[in-house]
């Protein structure tokens, strides 16, 4: 997958993004619809792993762990909005996005765990901070609604480019997880792009907050596109994607939305990141403390 252009057509945005999914694109991509019965579930992957039908290589497992941790930490962040959103429709929408992310996390972690005889819950609840492989963007605090939308905007455009290419992975399980996830993430793109427009072009206050939100999250964009030995090896084998190869499409498509919103691409210094090597920000410890507390009070218990 070193040359993704040969596998997939150039991505487009949502056409007239002010209209949204309902006006363009594939309506079956909406995460509010029930996923068809034959879609891949984490339980199916667990069964395949248990019966020896699939087993990821050490490299693929490490890679799946990264993607799973990104989605898990984001789901944990987004879940907090449920019952706190600016309007009920957003309780539902952000809840949906959190659920989608959690679903992707469960699939990736279940698959990754197959290499080490660990379950999704072993990996989610019984690893410590330095063992997590999520990028710093995902652990950034929710902030106000504009910060959450800014983070969501970057994440959804990044994940869309990533999953779109991963559907062509030579690793069948990664490809299958990505095929399900890309449809859901397409809806997330639509959700965040529409809010970028509303907030940027709504009122003076919302515009100031949106500008500030983008400024807060932008230092963590760079880390998403950094290649390392693992991604280079996996991309060489056609199993994964070089993060740097997503950058051009990401820049172009987010740039289109920001231009329509009459916003500048923030020119903020880039933070060094390090999440893929287990170096995290101060935030992750609190996230894990809360997420893991009950499971760790009852080690070995089943729920």
């Amino acid at each position: 997958m070193t040359t993704p252009e040969t596998h997939t057509a150039e991505t487009t945005g949502h056409g007239d993004i002010s209209v949204g999914v309902a006006g363009s694109g594939d309506s079956s991509a909406s995460a509010t619809r029930i996923t068809p019965g034959n879609a891949l579930r984490p339980e199916d992957i667990a069964l395949e792993v248990r019966t020896g039908l699939v087993k990821p290589s050490e490299d693929v497992a490490e890679y799946a762990l990264r993607l799973g941790d990104d989605a898990l930490i984001l789901a944990q962040r987004l879940g907090r909005w449920i019952s706190r959103a600016p309007e009920l429709e957003e309780d539902v929408a952000l809840g949906n996005i959190a659920l989608d992310q959690l679903g992707h996390a469960r699939s990736f972690l279940t698959y990754a765990g197959g290499a080490w005889e660990k379950s999704e819950d072993d990996l989610a609840y019984f690893r410590r901070e330095h063992e997590f492989r999520s990028a710093h963007l995902f652990e950034q605090p929710n902030g106000d609604f504009a910060v959450t939308i800014a983070r969501q905007f970057v994440v959804s455009y990044y994940q869309f480019e990533l999953y779109r290419r991963l559907t062509q992975s030579t690793d069948a399980t990664l490809a299958a997880i990505a095929a399900k996830a890309v449809k859901e993430v397409d809806y997330h793109r639509d959700h965040s792009a529409q809010w970028i427009l509303r907030l940027a072009l709504g009122t003076k206050e919302s515009r100031a907050r949106m500008t500030h939100g983008l400024k807060l999250v932008w230092p963590y964009v760079g880390e998403l596109f950094v290649d390392d030995e693992l991604t280079t090896r996996l991309a060489g084998a056609g199993a994964a994607v070089e993060p740097s190869s997503l950058k051009a499409d990401f820049d172009r498509l987010t740039g289109e939305v920001l231009a329509e919103a009459e916003l500048e691409v923030p020119q903020t210094p880039v933070a060094p990141g390090g999440g893929r090597r287990g170096k995290h920000s101060e935030h992750l410890g609190y996230i894990l403390a809360e997420m893991q507390v009950l499971a760790r009070e009852h080690p070995g218990a089943s729920w």
Binding site: G79, D91, L102, G103, R106, W303
Partner: peptide, 17 residues
């Protein structure tokens, strides 16, 4: 945020939603 398994977390999120 504290659901003790990821499956339970997903179910609870869906329920509150």
């Amino acid at each position: 945020s504290r659901a003790p398994s990821l499956k339970r977390k997903a179910i609870l999120m869906a329920k509150v939603q």
